[in-house]
Amino acid sequence: MREDDENQKDPNDSPEGPGVSRREFLKISGISVAVPLVAGPRVIKAAGQEVRVYGPGKVPMEFTINGKNYKANLEPRITLLDALRDQFELTGAKRVCDRAECGACTVLLDNKPVYACAMLAIEAQHKAITTVESLMRDGKLHPIQQAFVDNDASQCGFCTPGFVVACKALLDKYPHPTPEDIRRGLSGNLCRCGTYAGIRKAIAQVAQKGA
């Protein structure tokens, strides 16, 4: 091993990841300034028809989030969750397990609850994405948020945004949920503080008053 080998940068540490490194890309493309690397799709033939291949570098993407349009240049490997948090500063959806288990990143995709960590941002284009940030209107909490406050349904609060979105989805589908509907409807969200009793009371309050 050459002495300077250990000082060489691990390609895995590159912000561009181990695929095409920024340096290699610059060499290939002959671009001499470090502008953000955005490449349009490459067109290849598949079964005699043209299909567009995106990435592995950054590609332009467009999103509809809480009724507004957002644009960013992202790699195809970026999840919807990381796009929301890191690109658009919508940090209500929390990154906890990042493995489609805990529910802290719950958002609505075309009005259905999904884990933002379990979906690539590139697939979420042209869909209506709703995050917890949209629930508060004109400085007034959404009835579900108010019910969480009224019923002490948070302790550390880290799971709360995901739970609030999951509760909204549950109540949109079942305005008067049975205990069974609640059990199944909220099964995808975990609270390590154990505030489930408060969350059930919050749901009961909204179901009674209407959201």
């Binding site: 290849i44 598949a46 079964a47 028809q49 990435g55 195809p76 490997r77 690539l120 590139i122």
Partner: peptide, 16 residues
């Protein structure tokens, strides 16, 4: 890890 992404419209495209 990085990957390239393609979204075909037909079965034959996907298979190829």
């Amino acid at each position: 890890r990085p990957f390239e992404y393609v979204s075909p419209n037909t079965r034959t495209q996907a298979i190829s």
